[in-house]
Design a protein around this nucleic acid. Sequence first.
DNA 1: GACCAGGCACATC
DNA 2: GATGTGCATGGT
Length: 220
Amino acid sequence: MGSTAATLKEFYDALYARFGPQYWWPGDTPFEVMVGAILTQNTNWKNVEKAIGNIRKAGLLDPVALRSIDVGRLAELVRPAGYYNIKAARLMSLLRMLVDDFGGDMDALFEGSVAVLRERLLSVHGVGPETADSIILYAARKPTFVVDAYTCRMACRHNLILEDAAYDEVKAVFEENLPLDANLFNEYHALIVRLGKEFCRKTPVCAGCPLESHPHELQA
DNA sequence: GACCAGGCACATC
DNA sequence: GATGTGCATGGT
């Protein structure tokens, strides 16, 4: 059996060969990506698209404009994404930092090292590790590995991590065994999500899985 | 009608 | 520090 680095490269190659480029993140601007990162928390992307569509139709897909509205109105706009009261508050927290501390300038927010930016994002109420990493990778386009439920499921089933591994442990497995490359991390995470949607459901149905040549540790 | 979806904060022990 | 719970819409 090969090293973790070799396994991760092998998996990436198999996923890319099977699915091809995923063109993530689905969003036109860094700001839209950031909004989507909050709205997609534990939520199907289709519902997020409706919510972002509402914001766009209202002419509010802009940091300063969105920052200025009432949080209750924001909640109505993002209603299709679910958890709308919570998400409106979280989004507004992020908007307050972006607009009040950085003049609504995404480039200013993103300035500096990944570590500094990550701490900055994590300090916002409602931004956890996955949301922060999604914003760093897909909006700021800086190298940080995004870990989500699919990543944990896949890594666990292929014995790369223990089932109860913490977020930062899972993240470290990928970052320490792959080149530190934003484009690679972008595609890898997107491919894992694609894999998860088609194969690594909570109920493991892995026939035809592109990684099936590798031993699975299936669990209920 | 259950089950699930690209989390996070908070309460309780 | 581990474990459980609330938050909520829309698709399968």
